[in-house]
């Protein structure tokens, strides 16, 4: 194969298909994996905060006793605060850029590290925000008007039998494990492909 021939043909190839834009704003949004993932994550966490804010209106539509309402708002406030704190942490983190003018191997390593780090921060944000959700659901359920107010009061003051206490603790732990598992699965399902692609390319560059 004569690659010199190919070079001269490439040089004289018709390039009319590609045009330089009039200005940078005309360019489409980026397709680079790290930036795509970060854009999606930011939107997901913002959506989560909006959902939590909507949760504040639930007691308006559900009849709940006073203790339940108080607990509900305290828990929801804590959840929203945790998520907002993570979002703020992430927003500074999301602005970090990777220098694409380094050598290819270094660029791939940097992007892979940033991608893994971004996803870990995201998973922590989601898990920490979601771990109190089962308690919130429990308060909504036991705080319904049809139940005695003392039911929730007894649970809070631990005025319940050891069997119930163990049941609540084990139940909560199981739900927490499920939350962690689902978050990991969901993150890998949505973003694992980007990591795999970068890892594959890195393997190709490292192959002897």
């Amino acid at each position: 194969m004569n690659l010199d021939d190919i070079k001269s043909k490439m040089d004289s190839d018709n390039m009319d298909d590609q045009t330089i834009p009039q200005n940078i704003k005309e360019l489409k949004t980026t397709q680079l994996p790290l930036l795509k993932v970060r854009r999606n994550l930011r939107n997901e966490i913002l959506t989560q905060i909006l959902v939590f804010i909507c949760f504040f209106s639930i007691p308006i539509f559900l009849e709940m006793n006073e203790i339940a309402k108080g607990l509900y708002f305290i828990l929801l406030f804590i959840i929203t605060l945790i998520t907002i704190t993570y979002l703020l942490k992430m927003s500074t983190f999301l602005k970090r850029t990777t220098d694409i003018s380094l050598n290819s191997k270094q660029v791939l390593i940097n992007i892979l590290n940033e991608l893994n780090l971004t996803l870990e921060v995201y998973k922590t944000a989601i898990v920490s925000g979601s771990l109190l959700l089962p308690l919130l659901a429990f308060v909504v359920y036991t705080g319904k008007a049809k139940f005695e107010e003392s039911l929730l009061y007894d649970i809070i003051t631990l005025n319940i039998g050891p069997n119930y206490l163990i049941l609540y603790i084990v139940g909560y732990l199981l739900i927490s494990i499920l939350i962690v598992y689902i978050t990991n699965w969901w993150t890998n399902y949505l973003y694992g492909k980007y990591i795999k692609t970068i890892e594959k390319t890195l393997d190709e560059i490292n192959a002897a």
């Binding site: 680079l32 994996p33 220098d99 694409i100 003018s101």
Partner: peptide, 27 residues
């Protein structure tokens, strides 16, 4: 990444590097 071009090499060489890296990580 224009700021990373320090003028130590030809602009076209820098351009090649950025172009190839972008193509390699383009998804």
């Amino acid at each position: 990444s224009l700021n990373s071009f320090k003028g130590n090499s030809e602009f076209s060489s820098w351009m090649y590097r950025v172009a190839l890296n972008t193509a390699i990580v383009f998804f």
